[in-house]
Design a protein around this nucleic acid. Structure first.
Lengths: 332, 332
DNA sequence: TACCGATATGGGATCGTTCCCATAGAATAC
DNA sequence: GTATTCTATGGGAACGATCCCATATCGGTA
């Protein structure tokens, strides 16, 4: 199919050692020889075989990214999409190519695939089971975790300041004069949902509130946001709540749908706030006030940190936190 | 770092040939030897080195996916996100790992990267320049194009039935009694936008319309949808249009924003229709009527077709078209 | 003249697999 | 008893690079 270095060498009239020196750019070669080899490379459109290179270098310059999620949307989830965009850009800049895998069965299949391919490192995204970490640890491949939770002190992970964000949401709503709050909280076994709620509660405790009532959703998507508000409609109406906070934007948009269907004025009668700042948040009418997660920073940070891990730098911080920013729009 | 087959062989007391036969599953080995080798493999958590395998097999079982887009959102674009989810699932099912690349400068960089890595095939997504195709052709690596346009008769490509979809949109609006149509059309050098408009016009020509007025947008995002309607507001008001069609959902949502800001009743006074069926279309209030692009089918189809190309099947169809489906919601 | 240190290039082992071929012993056929 | 065919395993080349080491040529110096 494609040419190899031996052929380049033959056509340039040199040995493959010399050709290798010219092509890889390390080692000596006289100007004339250099020119001759490069001409042949150009003419044949020779592309050095990265597989063979990886073989001797024991280094692939590939990294693996696995998104653990039990069902779609995975890459099409707006939050993960943004994260992956950032990761791809950062990896490109550092000379890494990215294997992207989704793991729906929370299995070790994807991991095995990538280990066999001898990736230089792994970025594990979202809720992965503990057994995955334990498994990966046995092979000493560099890895880190993004947006997940772990009590394992060995694991490097990158997260957003969710508790702080929850606090900010509370401050914002309180400042707007609200005192009775209704909360739809996503699955509490998920770190971010739990912390956002904690932060929100903490903030209101500090600031003072007449009521903070929470309903819990086992899922964190649009449908369950709508379903939960619908199911608790009587309590919601009776409670005199003027503010609705949800632990992510999807839930907020679902709840908004119900409010709008019932012609409840937003923000006139009820203010609504989400968390994440997915694209749709800004496109909705009314545009959703939310707390932005720094997906760009996290994505870039993950690649940078993994790269340092691969280069065997010492004393990397186990935990890196990223700012959460209040984005005020029309729904509050 | 990790073990190799020679070590497995040594510990199992056999030659590496025999170990290879057991591990790869091809060739003879007696039951006892088989068991012995497998025990060692299990104990050492041996993972065969795919790099070395690829080297001798001259086959990587990797495919490259490149999304050509000049700026983010790329993977986070709802349409491409869905497409990539489908591609990943299909690739996994067929034993391929996926290198995902985005190419913002419309360069050959990503392509070179993947060619060096000796991927078995390439899936090229969206608007790529002709020079990329010409370049790729020189290396005879299997490739195909998704959602792009080309007049090159050699290129395999997969597209949605955009013209038919445009026609469907026209029929639907006409059926609802509309006769004066306002259209915001995305960049006409992009195949899908052009065909959707053609289909829409064609449909109305057949069915009869009092007015079809089109404004063109150089971009196809939310902001330009809003900007274009705003800029043409006087004409829009004066024209007595009762239906607004845009060549994708992003434009429609942008226009909807403006209509809602001006308190124009949708669908009461103006019906709005988009194209694509991105997630947010269903989440908006009012939920957007649109034409769904079969991203799942296209993604799956792309991988299947590429696999057949890799297996050197003959007489594959140059063009594969995927159904477009009318999704009626609340905005019409 | 002999020796040294540059300069410039080539030979060949190596990375971890696969796979072709050789071979040794056992079983069967004539 | 010899030839033939299995059964079961091992030896070693090959894939396409890199890189260490050897070596040849040349100018300069003692």
């Amino acid at each position: 199919m494609s040419h190899n270095i031996k052929e380049i060498a033959r056509l340039a009239g040199v040995s493959k050692s010399t050709a290798s020196r010219v092509i890889s750019g390390k080692g000596y070669a006289s100007p004339e020889v250099r020119a001759r080899v490069q001409t042949v490379v150009e003419q044949l459109q020779y592309k050095p075989n990265a597989v063979a290179r990886a073989m001797v270098a024991k280094r692939t310059h590939d990294i693996g990214v696995i998104v653990f999620r039990d069902r779609p949307p995975i890459v099409s989830h707006p939050l993960y999409g943004k994260l992956i965009d950032a990761i791809l850009a950062a990896a490109e800049a550092r000379g890494y190519s990215v294997f992207l895998k989704t793991d729906q069965e929370m299995s070790l299949r994807s991991t095995d695939f990538l280990l066999e391919r001898r990736v230089d490192g792994l970025i594990l995204i979202s809720r992965l089971r503990k057994n995955v970490i334990d498994y990966i640890k046995r092979f000493n491949v560099p890895y880190l975790m993004v947006n997940g939770s772990t009590d394992d002190p060995d694991v490097l992970h990158l997260v957003s300041r969710d508790e702080e964000g929850g606090d900010r949401a509370a401050s914002h709503l309180h400042e707007r004069g609200h005192r009775r709050y209704f909360v739809i909280a996503g699955p509490q076994e998920h770190r971010s949902h739990a912390l956002r709620l904690t932060g929100f509660r903490g903030g209101l405790e500090r600031l003072g509130a007449d009521a903070v009532d929470v309903v819990y959703s086992p899922e964190s998507n649009f449908e369950s946001g709508a379903r939960l508000l619908e199911a608790n409609w009587q309590a919601f109406e009776a409670g005199g709540y003027t503010a609705l906070f949800t632990t992510n934007d999807m839930l907020a948009l679902g709840a908004l749908k119900v409010l709008q269907a019932k012609a409840v004025a937003v923000p006139g009668r009820v203010a609504v706030m989400g968390f994440d700042d997915i694209v749709h948040a800004g496109m909705h009418t009314p545009a959703l006030t939310t707390v932005r997660v720094d997906t760009d920073g996290i994505g870039r940070g993950a690649v940078e940190m993994l790269d340092r891990l691969i280069r065997q730098e010492e004393d990397l911080p186990k935990l890196t936190e990223y700012a959460s920013e209040l984005i005020v729009r029309d729904s509050t």
